[in-house]
Amino acid sequence: MATTRKTTMTRTPLLSVQHLTMRFGGLLAIDNLSFDAYKGDITALIGPNGAGKTTVFNCITGFYKPTEGRIGFAHETDAYDKIDALTASANRSDIHGSALYLLERMPDFEISRDAKVARTFQNIRLFGGMTVLENLMVAQHAPLMTASSFTFGGLFGLKKYQDGHSHAMELAKFWLNKVGLTERADDPAADLPYGDQRRLEIARAMCTEPKLLCLDEPAAGLNGKESAELNELLLFIGKEHGTSVLLIEHDMNVVMGISDHIAVLDYGKKIADASPEEIRNDPKVIAAYLGVDEDEVEEAVKTPVKKKAAKSKGAKK
């Protein structure tokens, strides 16, 4: 019971990475990493190149099976009470009552479909030959298949399917509108300019109706204006829409401007885990970054957070 009180008094983690270790042969990519991402937060994962950030993402989304450690994911506030019992059992999830999942045990499509974790990649991976709208509809494949009773019901035009279909269309339209691509709904995704493709990827991930959205360098290759728009979009997703965000990013404007909480990785180890203010003054973090992106760190240290956020908001208008 003591633990219950503690979790309800402090904040509830949505994602809890515990003692995660990932080895590739002799290479130790992640070394005993633990961190939490909280509900309603934008959590950033930063670190120099090769620190193991993307590997963490790959473990969370089922690309890799971690060598050691567990990755808990809970939809309900008190679900973490059961994590030890779940780990001891052979099950991958406890969906009765409190939805609790052990992501490292689940195949990738179930992580998206059941646990509701979505992700984007460093390099854009849209379905280029399909239209923008179709890209968003693929993301809703699982609910649509249920609604259409595995296509058969859909072919006979059952009401359940029609409802499911119109719900899917509405969701797709909502996110199209949000990323400003409504006009281009019927164009092949590959024909969009780079910045639009980035935003379409985020819209597509959001169409899976995730509880946690994992973004791997969403600002890479974006210009100043586009990255300000991205900030706005991510703030909308995290703060208004209520989907928690886990973010890997090198662009310090984005990281410092929008995150609530930052975990810093270096050589697979966590070297800091705190608020943006504390991170920017943390000597260990600065040391890790020095020689890599000296100017950027100095700039980030000098500029206060609020001014940054204001600046990026100003750029949008």
Binding site: G62, F109, I111, S112, M137, A139, H141
Partner: peptide, 19 residues
């Protein structure tokens, strides 16, 4: 649609919940 998606990028399709 899911079939065409798998044709283009199997891994991405599965990350979007396609079995």
């Amino acid at each position: 649609r899911s079939q065409r998606a798998c044709e283009q990028d199997t891994k991405m399709a599965s990350l979007l919940g396609v079995n």
